[in-house]
Write a protein that binds this DNA or RNA. Structure first.
Lengths: 210, 210
DNA sequence: GCACATTTTAAACATGCGTTTTAATTTAAA
DNA sequence: TTTAAATTAAAACGCATGTTTAAAATGTGC
């Protein structure tokens, strides 16, 4: 009944799970191909290199998320009033869409984004910025409308604090949830974290600048 | 005139600079020993292993910062009123002290903390938590006093959002400063970033929880 | 100045990595 | 069914890593 999965997709699926859990550099092609139950050489055959595989994994997500986020931001810009909170709420439905397509989609994507961002070598940073640059600009613009009192350079930094809090919480999410469960006897699902995150981010961006 | 520097210290100095710039995993013992101008084997001779070296580098910072931060938090707890902002200001003087001892001390320390925190394998996470656990608790307590309306579990998460924004901004600091300089023609020193960061963090922690 | 412990050095070791090669196999078209 | 292309498979390559070894050099106490 179930459709045959191509080698290419088997690799992508195994790779994204391992990347999200261990990062790009720490994940070997041997782990990936073992998990995917394909031959080691097939990665280089289908993708050319490990770098290209990483970019392909990211592309699968960016192609879904980017248009969705752009749509939400466009919708928002038609509103008479734009609050910081409303800007961040624009992320909710794209991420939820992603969750429907892929169970752990948002978690994986944000983890990937975190690792991509922390990537010093920059080949991924350049790649993601090429695809994310426009959305970044739209985000900055929307946040500026919501917060005209903040200087562009202040907003630039705050947007990166936002990104930092987000991806960091996501990357260390499993460990943190473990600690939280032990300390508070309360399990926190990944999709609940964004509910905790958004108020924090909006409060940070809306804060007076000194 | 200048004192002879021991091999051990030469290794520690070279290691911390490279760790802060490239992370723990991406830095090889060969890079470290080349920069330190010592023999490759001396790392294993003096420290036993790369893991032990990493912990020794962290320890040098923790031993300076932890007591200083504890002192500031204790001083704060004697005040009649405690605000979230005041809690975060407790970091200023310990970090400045660090800067006087080591020129790029705060930058390096926060970068190290970031890499340590992102470290999945956990040997460093466990190590740093052993040394940082008490301060974490004191921080949580102080923040709870400043913000009694927030539930412990909410505070737990927000503290980690804070940590995320901080270390992330620090780790990607060089690249971000580069972009900022290009986009705004404005160079931003590392020690000015904390002035931008603290208002953001305080605003985030003080935000309503939904 | 000698004997012993400490430290430094150079070389090799074992392991894991991304990649390439070459042959076997499967797939698809004629 | 035959033939050519696409894919899979196993093995090896070249390189970088952390670590270990054993000899040389240096320092130290008597």
């Amino acid at each position: 009944m179930s459709k045959r999965v191509s080698t290419k997709d088997k690799i992508l699926n195994a790779a994204e799970a391992l990347f999200a859990e261990h990062g790009f550099e720490q994940t070997s092609l041997r782990q990936i191909t073992a998990d995917a139950e394909v031959n080691l050489a097939s990665v280089n055959y289908h993708f050319g290199s490990k770098k290209a595989l990483i970019q392909a994994v990211m592309a699968r997500y960016l192609e879904v998320l980017m248009p969705a986020l752009d749509r939400e931001l466009a919708k928002l810009s038609e509103q008479p009033q734009v609050t910081t909170r409303a800007v961040f709420d624009c992320f909710r439905s794209p991420l939820n869409e992603l969750r429907q397509v892929r169970k752990h989609g948002p978690t994986i994507f944000l983890s990937l984004l975190g690792y991509a961002y922390a990537d010093i070598q920059g080949h991924l940073r350049r790649y993601t910025m090429d695809h994310f640059g426009d959305v970044m600009q739209n985000l900055l613009a929307a946040l500026h409308v919501a917060n005209p009192n903040l200087s562009p350079v202040d907003m630039f930094w705050r947007l990166h604090f936002v990104l930092g809090a987000t991806v960091f919480a996501q990357v260390s999410g499993p460990a943190l949830r473990e600690i939280a469960a032990a300390d508070f006897g309360e399990a926190i699902a990944a999709d609940q974290m964004i509910d905790r995150l958004i108020p924090f981010l909006a409060g940070g961006v809306d804060a007076p600048s000194r």
